[in-house]
Amino acid sequence: MVENRPLLTVLTHLVLIVGVIVVVFPVYLAFIASTHGSGDFMRGLVPLLPGPHLIENYGKMLTEGISTAGAPPLWIMLMNSLIIAIIIAVGKIAISLLSAYAIVFFKFPFRMVAFWIIFITLMLPVEVRIIPTFAVVANLGLLNSYVGLTLPLIASATATFLFRQFFLTVPDELMEAARVDGAGPIKFFRDILLPLSRTNIAALFVILFIYGWVQYLWPLLVTTDSRYYTVVMGIKRLAATADSEPQWNFVMAAVMLAMLPPVLVVIFMQRLFVKGLVETEK
C-alpha cells in the first residue's frame, strides 16, 4: 500500500499485536506453569514469570511419568507419537503417490470410477467410520499395535487428490521424452516424477505429520496397553485424575514437550513447505 496514514498503521499493528497475544499467551502460560512447583498454580495468584523447577519437572515427566494417573514416562509416549506420525505421513504419501500416478498416467478401464471411489473416502474420515473400523481392527487382532494405530488412518484420499492435481500439470511431453529416452514406467516415476514432486511431498509431509501427531480419538480406542499410548491421549490421562487436583506443572511440561516435535518439523521443513504450496518447479 502506498497510503501514508499513521493512524491506520497504528490501528493495524494494534490488531496484529492483540491477535498475537491471544494466540501466544496460553502457550506462554503453559510454559510458565511447567517451570513452577506442584502447588504454585493452585494458590489463586497465577505467576507470570518462570519458576525454578523447570529441569526438575521436565526430567520427571520424561523419565518417570505420573504413575498415579496411569501414564508411562513421557519419552515412551513421545516415541510412540513420533513413530505413528511418521508411519502415517510416509504411508499416506507413498500410497497417494502411487495411486495418483496410476490414475493420471495410465489408461485402464474404469479409471474415473477408481478415482471417484478414492475421492469418496474423503467423506469418510476415521471419526465417521470409527465403530466398523474398530471392529475390523479388533477382529484382526491389531489392538495395541502400531499397525492397528496407523493403518486405518493411512487409508484416505486427501493426498491422492493433491498429487493428482499436481501430476496433471506435468506436461505430456516430459513423459514422452522419457519414453523416447528409454525410461519405463518405474524409471519415469523414480527419476522424473518423484524429484518433481519433492516440494509437494515435503508440504504434505508436514501436514500429515501433524495430522498423525494430534490423533486423539483413535489411539484412545485401540490402545489399552500403556506401552502404546501416544502423547496427545496421554495428556488427557494426566489431567483427568479422579480424586485429586491435577498436577498442572507436570501436565504443562508434558504439553510443552508434546508441542515441540510438530513445531520442529514445521521450522525445519518450512522452506520446502512454502515452496511446495506456492510454486511448482517446471
Binding site: 506436461p171 511431453e173 521424452a177
Partner: peptide, 8 residues
Amino acid sequence: QNYALYPH
C-alpha cells in the same frame, strides 16, 4: 516443441 527438458 516445448523442449521437454527434465527440469530437476
